[in-house]
Nucleic acid binder design. Structure first.
Length: 866
DNA sequence: GCAAGGTC
């Protein structure tokens, strides 16, 4: 909750408030003087950004290959970490010494904080955040006088004057049980999710080469979400079309108009019976009117907009995925165009300024007429919706044009605004008339709708009642000539794949995820390649998604059923209500899932049988690329994510760096293990470096980590290592070293082995070597360059030059700094504009890195080996 | 590398 802080502060300090941004640049601090418990005090009010802390395992339990996933259920200790270290929230709160309304009389004298009032969202998560804030602030608060209460909780259902006053007048205490229920939820989700995810991923990735997903994840929300999609897939698969027959009659209303009549039996599944009815009606020449009816009906104006409805419409009508729609809405919110976009509430607060909100739209060219008419004739009272007690419904906050917002954001804004106008418009009224006919023994009906007043459908034209021709006026006993009776043969059709909008509805219905997390779960199952988004934003499960769900059904259906979440939530609610002990519930639930986990592990063959049908074993996947250092046979390169090399003879897998291409590196071998080197490249404009598949997975030296290439290898003598090709400290990042890319000629490059800095150095050199000598000024390694005779930049037709790329006047001019990734176009050096960005400057290599070879190679080697 | 929940 961000903006409400200012609203609450404003409430207590009309006109005397001073505000400034906090040290993290995100949260504002509002200060003012007021009264609290009868004394004049200095208030400071600030906010947090969601949870302050997040739960994770201790570092050493995050090593996948060293920890048995079963340990994650109990042995592995967890710790709370700052949720977003960049925000530095704990320090920020400690500096403020209060959060969300702290009342500190002595603060004027700079002596600290005496009281704290917590104004967070009034739900379980909010209660939990209260304690996160307290944990941060309590150590730096002033000592309370004995028996004095210093911590207060304000409870409110909306940010209105009345609510704020009431909350302030009836301050309570934060509810520890509610907070504990969230602690339990966090721990359960973490332990269960990670255990299953790690086990599945390791098991199947170790067996199959074309799974096409770098992670086989499991979670109490994402797995049932996938389950819904596969359930629909199964219905489609098992659907057997049935033939049925329908009678259709046409009667002549007047000389150039026929009416199409619907059969009251709708359809029959027996051809002979249909034929019999056809024969009986065919004999008749006239249709007799049995009854007529006219009913005035209304199509209700929509309820005020909440998040899931916005996401449904964004997906079904605007073709915008939930994740994208949410990001767009967030931007509209932070720019002040719409109100807070995450809410379950569909009811406007009692004092909501409907007219004021509407007035802001009065001159908007797209709906000025409708809005002015409403303002002149009086708005309609919105329908009574659901008040979830969180935030008001989503409404426009100011007028905006397409040019201002850009087309994507505009489309969402336009919808939100039209929806808002519709909620204060009138219902659409139409007349539904119908005529019942009898043709022989069979009855038929004809219906028609005519709009009486369009109401809200004027502003939401896509909702309007379709135009139909009005029916002829007639009465009981009238007859019309039958112009045709025929029998149509039709087939029942299967349902289609689930749309995102339908999935959102199912998730909401079963309590899977929240308004904020529903888009995340849907996005997850797409990113993990369990489903693909097809035309019409329908979600079609992939083979992987289908196999997983069918596997769960085979082993333990509860793992995929939507009840898995609600059952746990029930237990958690007991904690929140103080009816159950936190430790007991947590222990019991973990125990249940631990048993499920062990049963799942023991029964994994059941899922594996399904996997075998769809996927190929590692040994049968990929193309032979490089030789194994152990058996000297070719290993296969598996391109599918995660890309890796597999030696089927040794049955070993070596993961490779992702997001790049891999090829054989001149059949050169690593001097340590005899594996053939491969060359990783991020593309012609990026960087490339050789790597040893074995070393990269089993770092040979203490100061190396998994995934490193030769450009980070500290081997003192190998010709591909950092020691031999390193030039000097990176010009941008802290710990990186610029390393010569030996494959980059004739357009020579050196690239940082940590960040994406690339320095282009010599375009017309046919050989570049890193010299054993170093620069006397900056200690960088000198480069020994042979230039092309015709294009040499050297004076007097010279072709050979040795010098420092940073300090040598000739080389300096030839170096141009770029970035490997295209993600930061701002930083890319443009051709032709050398000045100001050409040469690596600003930070001289400090000598931390010394590329000189050590004198005693063997002693250095000995020191390096683990 | 993993979950789900906040929010930026």
């Amino acid at each position: 909750m961000q903006a409400p802080g200012a609203a609450i502060a404003m409430h207590f300090s009309p006109g005397s408030m001073s505000s400034h941004k906090g040290l993290n640049g995100t949260c504002s601090v509002h200060e003012y003087t007021g009264t609290f418990a009868g004394q004049t005090v200095r208030f400071k009010m600030t906010s947090v950004c969601g949870h302050v802390m997040t739960l994770d395992f201790l570092g050493k339990y995050n090593k996948w290959d060293k920890v048995d996933p079963a340990e994650l259920f109990s042995q592995a200790p967890t710790e709370k970490k700052e949720a977003n270290p960049k925000l530095n929230m704990v320090k920020f709160l400690q500096v403020c010494k209060e959060a969300f309304g702290c009342l500190a009389p002595q603060l004027v004298e700079g002596k600290g904080c005496d009281y704290i009032v917590l104004w967070l969202d009034c739900d379980k998560e909010g209660e939990n955040i209260c304690f996160e804030v307290l944990d941060a602030v309590a150590p730096v608060m002033n000592q309370a006088h004995s028996g004095e209460k210093t911590v207060f909780r304000a409870r409110f259902s909306s940010i209105t004057d009345t609510d704020i006053c009431n909350a302030m007048a009836r301050l309570g205490e934060p509810d520890h049980n509610e907070a504990l229920s969230v602690d339990a939820r966090q721990e359960l989700d973490l332990r269960i999710g990670c255990a299953f995810t790690r086990f599945q991923t390791k098991y199947f990735q170790g067996k199959y080469g074309n799974l096409d997903s770098s992670l086989i994840s499991f979670g109490p929300c994402q797995t049932p979400t996938l389950g819904f999609c596969v359930e629909r897939h199964d219905k489609i698969q098992s659907f057997k079309p049935e033939t049925y027959w329908v009678l259709q009659a046409k009667v002549t209303a007047d000389k150039d108009r026929t009416l199409l009549l619907d059969w009251d039996r709708v359809r029959v599944f027996d051809r002979e019976i249909a034929q019999m009815f056809l024969n009986m009606t065919k004999l008749e020449k006239e249709a007799q009117v049995e009854a007529t009816s006219k009913k005035e009906k209304a199509k209700q104006r929509p309820l005020a907009l909440n998040t899931v409805e916005m996401l449904r419409v964004a997906s079904s009508s605007l073709g915008m995925g939930p994740q994208h729609a949410m990001q767009t809405a967030e931007r509209l919110y932070t720019q002040g165009y719409i109100s807070y976009p995450r809410t379950e509430t569909t009811h406007y607060p009692e004092n909501f300024d409907l007219k004021g909100t509407l007035r802001l739209q009065a001159n908007h060219p797209c709906w000025t007429d409708s809005v002015k008419k409403l303002l002149a004739e009086g708005i309609n009272r919105p329908r009574k919706g659901h008040d979830a007690g969180d935030h008001p419904p989503i409404t426009p906050m100011r007028s905006a044009t397409e040019a201002e917002l850009g087309s994507e954001a505009w489309r969402l804004y336009e919808y939100i605004t039209r929806h808002f106008i519709a909620t204060v418009s009138y219902d659409c009224k139409y007349l539904q008339s119908s005529i019942s006919f009898r043709i022989g023994p069979e009855r038929f009906t004809c219906t028609g709708k005519t709009v009486i007043s369009p109401g809200f459908t004027e502003i939401m034209p896509w909702q309007s009642v379709p135009l139909e021709e009005s029916l002829p006026t007639c009465q009981k006993g009238d007859t019309f000539p039958v112009s045709e009776v025929k029998m149509l043969e039709k087939q029942t059709s299967p349902p289609d794949y689930l749309t995102e909008a339908e999935l959102i509805t199912l998730m909401e219905k079963h309590g899977i995820g929240t308004d904020a997390s529903i888009p995340v779960h849907i996005n997850n199952i797409c990113q993990r390649n369990y489903v693909t988004v097809e035309s019409g934003r329908r979600l079609k499960p992939t083979n992987l998604g289908i196999v997983l769900v069918h596997g769960y059904y085979k082993i333990d259906a509860e793992l995929v059923l939507p009840t898995i979440r609600s059952a746990v939530e029930k237990q958690l609610n007991l904690i929140a209500q103080g009816k159950a002990d936190y430790r007991q519930v947590l222990g019991h639930t973990l125990d249940v899932f631990k048993r499920k986990f062990h049963y799942f592990v023991d029964s994994i063959a059941g899922m594996d049988e399904l996997m075998e049908v769809s996927f190929s074993p590692l040994a049968a996947t990929g193309k032979p690329l490089s030789r194994c250092g152990k058996c000297h046979r070719f290993m296969k390169y598996i391109q599918a994510k995660p890309s890796r090399l597999h030696c089927s003879h040794c049955d070993e897998t070596y993961t490779l760096p992702q997001n790049g291409t891999i090829k054989l590196y001149k059949e050169l071998r690593c001097p340590l293990d005899d594996f053939e080197l491969v060359l990783w490249s991020s593309g012609s404009r990026g960087k490339s470096y050789p790597l040893c598949p074995y070393c990269s997975n089993h770092p040979p030296f203490r100061d190396m980590k998994k995934g490193m290439g030769c450009n980070e290898c500290t081997h003192p003598t190998c010709q591909h290592s950092l020691s031999m090709l390193g030039i000097g400290q990176c010009v941008e990042c802290e710990s990186g070293v610029l390393v010569l890319d030996p494959t980059s000629g004739p357009k020579w490059k050196m690239a940082c082995n940590k960040c994406n800095v690339v320095a282009h150095c010599f375009e017309n050199a046919h050989r570049v070597r890193v010299s054993p000598d170093t620069c006397s000024v900056c200690e960088a390694a000198l480069l020994d360059v042979d230039f092309n005779k015709a294009k040499s930049p050297l004076p007097d037709n010279e072709t050979q030059h040795t010098g420092c790329v940073f300090c040598d006047p000739i080389f300096q001019e030839l170096v141009e700094l770029k970035h490997a990734a295209t993600r930061h176009p701002m930083h890319r050096g443009g051709p032709g504009r050398r000045q100001g960005r050409g040469r690596a400057r600003g930070r001289r290599p400090t000598g931390k890195f010394n590329p000189r070879r050590p004198k005693d190679k063997m002693s250095a080697l000995a020191a390096y080996f683990v």
